Simulated assay, not measured.
Amino acid sequence: MEDILRPIYQERASQANTLGVLMIEKRQKEMTVTDTFDSVMLIIVKEADKPVFIKHYTYTDKKAALHIITETQLKKWILLGTNKKIFEWLYNGRVIFDRNEYVSQLKSELKDFPVIQRKRKMGVEFAKLIRRYMDGKAFFENKHYLDAYNDVVHSLHHLARLAVIENGFHPEVTVWSQVKQIEPEIYKLYVELINSEEPLEKRLELLFLASEFLIHSKTKMSIQHISDILTEKDYWSFNDLIENEELFLVYSVDLGRLIEYLIEKHFIEVVEVETKSPKVYHRYYKVSKKD
C-alpha cells in the first residue's frame, strides 16, 4: 500500500517548504480518526497559498486522503482545539519525513505541554465555558429548558477539557474517558445530567448550582493568560483588547462576554474616563487588585 502512495508524498517531501510528512492508517474500531479513509497522508508546510489543501485518491479497493496544512494553521488547531483529530494524527501517525526534526520537536512539545501553552489553552476553554454557561442560564431563567440543556452540555464539555488541561494534558477525542480519571466530579455531573430521571428543570437547576462552584474554583488559574496581558498597561479600551493579536487569536468573539463575567466576579475593574459629553464616560478595563 505504501509503495503505491509513496510517489505522492515523496514529491512533497523533496520541496524545501515541507517540514514533515506523517502517514496515518485506519484502525479497525477507530474509523472516525481517518474519516473512514484507509490512509491519511499529513504534510506540514512552512507556507502555502491556502492554509489547508485536501485531495482524495482511490487505489485498488481502498481510498486515501492527502492533507497539506501550513505550520500556522496547525498551531491554531492545537491552540483552539477546533480539529480534534490532529492530536491523534500527530501522536500516532508514522513519521515518514522530518526536516531538521521538526515533527519530533513538535511531538515532544505536545507531550511536555509548556506552561505558556497551557495558560493559553485554559484561556480558550474558559472563555467558551463562560459563554455557554451564561447563555444556558439565561435560557433557563426564561424557561427555555431544551435550549438551556444544549448549552449546559457544551459548557460541561468545556469544563471537562479545562480540567484535563489544568492537569497537564491535551484534551483528546475521548475527553470524557480522560476526565473520568482526572476529575470524576465533573464526569459525575455530566452523567447525572444525561441519565437522571428527574424532570429536566430540576436537573438543570441542580447542575447550575454545582457548576457555579466548579467554575469559581477554576477561574483564577484559567484567566492567568488574559491577566498577564492586561497588566502590561494601566488600562485598556475594548478596541485596544481586540486589536491585540494574541488576545484576539485566543478569545475572538468570546472576549466581550469573558470581560463582563470577570467584571461581575471582581477580577477586572472598570475605569471611567470623562468624555466631552456631560455624564458620559469612556469605559476602560484593568486587572483588579483582588488576591
Rank of each mutant, 00 (worst) to 15 (best):
R131K: 12
W176I: 03
Q117I: 14
N92R: 10
Y133D: 10
Q117F: 13
I86M: 00
E183F: 04
Q178W: 05
V103A: 08
V191N: 00
E172M: 14
Q178C: 07
H67V: 05
K188L: 03
T72I: 10
L106Q: 05
K180T: 11
H154P: 01
L193S: 02
Q105N: 13
L79R: 08
R99C: 09
K119M: 14
E197K: 13
L193R: 00
W89L: 02
H144K: 11
V95C: 05
D135T: 14
K188Y: 03
R131S: 10
E185G: 08
F126H: 11
L66R: 00
N167Y: 10
K121Y: 07
K107F: 09
I116G: 07
L193E: 00
K107T: 15
N83D: 04
G168I: 10
L110Y: 07
M134S: 14
D151E: 08
R132E: 07
V152I: 03
G136H: 03
P184W: 01
N100R: 09
F139L: 11
H154I: 05
S155I: 00
H158D: 06
Y145F: 15
K143V: 12
K121C: 10
S155F: 00
G136D: 02
L110C: 05
P184Y: 01
K84L: 09
H157V: 02
R161K: 15
M134G: 10
S108G: 15
N92E: 09
H144F: 09
W77T: 01
G168C: 11
R99H: 11
L159Q: 02
L146C: 05
N83S: 05
L162R: 02
E198S: 14
I78C: 03
V152D: 00
Y149F: 14
G168P: 06
K137C: 06
E185V: 07
Y102S: 10
D147H: 07
I165N: 07
L79P: 02
W176V: 02
H144E: 12
V179S: 01
V115S: 13
K121F: 07
K121T: 14
W77F: 06
A127T: 06
H158Q: 11
V164A: 04
E125N: 12
K180C: 02
R118E: 14
P184M: 01
N150R: 08
T82N: 11
T72H: 08
F87E: 04
V95P: 01
G81N: 03
Y187G: 00
N195G: 10
Y145I: 06
P171H: 07
Y102H: 09
E198T: 09
H157A: 11
E183T: 14
R94I: 15
Q178T: 09
R99A: 13
L66A: 01
